[in-house]
Design a protein around this nucleic acid. Structure first.
Length: 634
DNA sequence: GTGGACACC
């Protein structure tokens, strides 16, 4: 938006006239707009309505090296548009590191180099691997503060916990230093930043420090690309970051600490050179950088659940997904698994084409199971309730639990509990917030993140607009919440689990152990329920179900017949059902095999390269102790 | 009996 604003000022027009912008919840453009700045997500949605993008003559894909999921899907689509339309131009801008690769993907088009305007950055390497990088970073920061000329410090850590620890230790060391030193000591302003930090605290990093004080910002990779602070002359890079990795076989996301890529490390270093010549202290050896880090991060499309991507591409008439021209094709397992899941949800038919339900699901910017929950809400007569639940599930957890007020915030959360369902608990939170006029101070009083709730409200209103354009009627079942639980069950029966012990479950289909999270409302039932469905399974210290709801076993049979049947039922009928399902499965397997065969033919050369990238923890053999990704035992 | 980088539709 700020770029759009600057350009429109330069062209001496109002923003939204000749120059405009569009992001998810905002569209500031008009009939006279000739330059439109937008996110890759907005453009991707536009291609669904007009796959030739006839509205545009030129598209500039900026920051292409970031390789977001949407950008990667767009590349494949735009490549086709370029082939079809003679009057269309595509310009891709990227960090030079990857330029060759982009050029090659688009039939070896010419590359233009545009020199950057940053200052040189001196790199200092660690001579030996650093065992404890939190401690290492703190020591380095103190050293810079004591011995180096003015200029702010930026430290990269992996997450909230580390940031809090680092800030705490830093403050402690500073205090010791000040009290043991006789002379006056320059101040150090320690500032944490990560996305979940409340906005007012985030804003502090941009404020000027009082006279003589040096700022020390301790950040996640939010400071790598998303926000830029001027005045940084020193960067301390731990060399690590968190990354979400999807495991299709277990249907589970893990958030793991990995060494960052060389490209990311260089990006981090560059943050020291915006104001003047800077310094980057890397808490890893030059050899680790050269030999053990990947040149660039594994693209998101290769490590994510592809449900929504499959749905989108199917709606664009890409019949054979393994044939789609991805710059870096995702692992076949991910594609096939997502197709299977869409088939199970009833979005794809036996030959892999979109069903009526599937076509409707595409309209919603939601993961397929969430879209299905919405549409089942329509069918079952509880759309209003489900709209709220889906919106709440689309934002980060709204419960705020500061460490120093853990008990107090737990008690506040428990007051919202609906004992049979975490989903209904979320609904309850939203309703109460609404009844209190969507007030911010009410959120603070009840240990809720205002930001998250506001976002949920925006999402809800966007979904409501789509519901209206589809002429779906807005039904409610209140106060019969069993119907809501049925709607949840109808979209999440693949995540059904059966009780094994208190709070201990196993997935009904896969046998995967899964645990109720200690924060779940279901603990409030006294005895935990026999059957639950859950929103997602996340591996941390255990496999935890995030957001679970008690369901009746007969609902599973009724709403998820491809997985479940009631034992007592007529054996003959059961056998017939089984045969029918087996037949469908066979069809699906045939479809998959055909798709696989073609893929193998055409992508033979690519495959070796691809596999190298796909084996995600993706580090070369003989990694030193510096590289120790958490091992995932499957 | 306790979690969770970051964008985005």
């Amino acid at each position: 938006m700020s770029v759009a604003k600057r350009v429109s000022e330069e062209m001496e027009t109002e923003l939204g006239e000749k120059v405009g912008y569009a992001i998810r919840f905002e569209n500031v453009t008009g009939p006279n707009t000739i330059i439109k700045y937008m996110t890759d997500g907005v453009l991707l949605r536009e291609t669904l309505k007009d796959s030739d993008l006839d509205k545009y003559r030129v598209i500039v894909m900026d920051e292409a090296h970031e390789r977001s999921l949407n950008t990667d899907v767009l590349f494949g689509i735009l490549k086709k548009v370029v082939a079809r339309r003679r009057d269309f131009k595509l310009i891709v801008t990227s960090a030079t590191l990857n330029a060759q690769k982009f050029s090659h993907f688009f039939a070896s088009v010419p590359i233009y180099h545009i020199p950057g305007r940053t200052f040189p950055v001196t790199t200092l390497w660690s001579k030996t691997p650093v065992e404890d990088y939190v401690e290492g970073a703190v020591q380095q920061a103190m050293r810079i503060h004591i011995t180096s000329p003015p200029g702010d410090i930026l430290i990269f850590m992996t997450g909230q916990d580390e940031i809090e620890a680092a800030c705490y230790v830093l403050a402690e060391r500073m205090e010791q230093m000040v009290s043991s030193s006789k002379k006056a000591f320059p101040k150090l302003l320690i500032l944490p930043i990560y996305s979940q930090l409340p906005a007012d605290l985030q804003a502090k990093i941009f404020q000027r420090a009082e006279d003589g004080a040096r700022k020390c910002i301790v950040a996640t990779n939010i400071a790598e690309t998303s926000l830029t602070v001027d005045g940084i002359l020193y960067v301390i890079d731990t060399g690590y970051g968190k990354m979400k990795v999807y495991n299709p076989r277990m249907g589970m996301d893990t958030l793991q600490v990995f060494p960052v890529s060389r490209a990311a490390a260089d990006q981090r270093a560059g943050r020291a050179g915006r104001t003047g010549p800077g310094t980057c202290c890397r808490l890893y050896t030059e050899s680790a950088y050269l030999n053990e880090m990947l040149p660039s991060p594994v693209p998101e499309i290769q490590r994510t659940n592809l449900g929504i991507v499959v749905l989108l591409l199917k709606s664009l008439k890409v019949d054979n997904l393994l044939d789609f021209d991805f710059m870096d094709p995702p692992p076949q397992d991910n594609i096939l698994n997502s197709m299977y899941q869409l088939w199970v949800l009833g979005a794809l038919n036996n030959v892999g084409a979109l069903t009526d339900l599937g076509w409707k699901m595409v309209e919603f910017p939601l993961d397929p199971p969430l879209a299905k929950m919405l549409l089942m809400g329509e069918q079952l007569g509880c759309l209003k309730e489900v709209l709220t639940i889906v919106s709440m599930l689309s934002v980060p957890s709204v419960f705020f639990r500061p460490k120093d007020r853990a008990e107090e915030s737990d008690a506040a959360r428990e007051r919202f509990f609906v004992p049979e369902s975490d989903h209904l608990t979320l609904y309850n939170v939203y309703q109460q917030w609404k009844q209190h006029d969507y007030r911010g101070d009410w959120c603070n009083d009840h240990f809720l993140h205002v930001k998250g709730l506001r976002k949920a409200r925006e999402v809800r209103s966007q979904l409501l607009d789509i519901v209206k354009t589809l002429k779906i009627s807005l039904t409610t079942c209140w106060p019969d919440t069993d119907i809501v639980r049925k709607a949840i069950c109808s979209a999440y029966f693949h995540n059904a689990a059966r009780l094994k012990g208190v709070g201990e479950y196993v997935n009904c289909r896969t046998g995967m152990p899964c645990h109720l999270h200690p924060s779940s409302a279901l603990y409030g039932m006294g005895a935990t329920p026999e059957y639950v469905v859950y929103h997602e399974l996340i591996l941390t210290t255990k496999e935890y179900m995030q957001c679970a709801t008690a369901v009746e076993p007969q609902w599973l049979a009724e709403l998820g017949p491809m997985f479940f049947s009631v034992k007592e039922s007529d054996k003959k009928k059961q056998k017939q059902e089984k045969t029918a399902m087996e037949e469908e499965m066979e069809n699906l397997k045939k479809m998959q095999a055909e798709v696989e065969r073609k893929q193998k033919q055409e992508e033979k050369e690519k495959l070796a390269k691809q596999q190298q990238q796909v084996s995600m923890p993706g580090l070369k053999k003989g990694s030193s102790t510096y590289l120790r990704p958490k091992k995932l035992d499957l």
